[in-house]
């Protein structure tokens, strides 16, 4: 029973990682950049939801919508100001710019909101028991897993069935050819950033519901974890990000429960290295062969 309860909380945590990893993976797939500022968008979303709920006293759903709006706007603005001028620059320059943006967001948050930790209001607390009380499952884990599944399903439909989704796939395949087919690549990249950032806001609220503290460097660790999850599953692949996130959450929870809390970090990354050695492009990544 203990194993089952760890598994469920692991899947809950993994769902949050999966939602963040989707943002990473989509941006990577289309803009071919590692957006290291993605974690800090989560932080912005957490602050937006926090102030909407405490200062303005709004209900959770409204706060979530506001947080999504703030993150989407922020993501698109960052893309327009910092990344768009670097469309043809080397990937390292873009990486450094993303790091600069990450520092900027963290320090701006510190100036605006202070560096002290704020307590996120309790949402979705409580749990129900199964098997005549032998297994207790928190509502939050269930809600997180359900939300993640809904997002995953919605996103898959969007990518595969809509015209914009088709354009996105075209851009990730070959930008030059996509332009020739009359696709507005800049608009597609903006949309990708908007979706990724909106998902980050949802992840932020789920994350804060699990660990109810809000502070300026909140996003770094989940950011790195989700990035790992995205690579784990095969960066650029949407089902890969989903699978990678879930697996990472389960591995982390199991490592904490059965091996050592202090070493959980090392174990997670060791598993990542082993996976990449066996499958060099992640679990569901595509192998790209290089032509001479």
């Amino acid at each position: 029973m203990a194993f089952l309860s760890y598994l469920i909380s692991g899947l809950g945590l993994g769902s949050v990682y999966a939602i963040i990893a989707l943002g990473y993976s989509m941006v990577y797939g289309i803009a071919k950049m590692l957006n290291f500022a993605h974690g800090d968008i989560i932080m912005a979303g957490a602050f937006a939801a926090f102030f909407a709920m405490t200062a303005a006293g709004m209900p959770l759903i409204v706060a979530a919508l506001i947080s999504m709006a703030v993150c989407t706007l922020l993501g698109v603005t960052i893309e327009r100001l910092a990344y768009k001028p670097l469309r043809n620059a080397s990937s390292l320059s873009v990486l450094i710019t993303a790091i600069g943006v990450s520092y900027f967001l963290q320090n701006a948050a510190q100036l605006l909101f202070g560096s002290d930790t704020k307590i996120f209001p309790a949402v979705l607390s409580g749990s129900f028991s199964l098997f005549s009380g032998a297994l207790s499952v928190s509502y939050l884990s269930v809600v997180t897993i359900v939300i993640c599944l809904v997002i995953m399903g919605g996103l898959t439909l969007f990518i595969n069935k809509t015209k914009t989704g088709k354009a996105m796939r075209a851009c990730s395949e070959d930008k030059g050819a996509a332009v020739l087919m009359g696709i507005n690549v800049n608009r597609i990249i903006s949309i990708t950033f908007a979706i990724g950032s909106g998902l980050a806001a949802i992840a932020a609220i789920l994350l804060c519901a699990t660990y109810p503290s809000v502070y300026p460097t909140l996003g770094s660790m989940p950011g790195i974890r989700a990035f790992t999850a995205a690579v784990f599953g095969g960066i650029g692949s949407i089902p890969g990000a989903f699978l990678g996130g879930l697996l990472l959450g389960v591995i982390e929870t199991m490592a904490k429960a059965y091996i050592s809390t202090q070493l959980s970090d090392a174990i997670v990354f060791a598993v990542l290295i082993i996976v990449l050695l066996i499958r060099p492009t992640g679990l569901l990544g595509r192998k790209v062969s290089v032509k001479v």
Binding site: L86, A89, S93, I96, T97, Q106, N107
Partner: peptide
């Protein structure tokens, strides 16, 4: 640190202009 971040971004933008 805010200024440091801005300097970093601006250098990257200018050097790739």
């Amino acid at each position: 640190m805010l200024i440091y971040a801005v300097v970093l971004i601006v250098i990257m933008l200018v050097s790739n202009n």
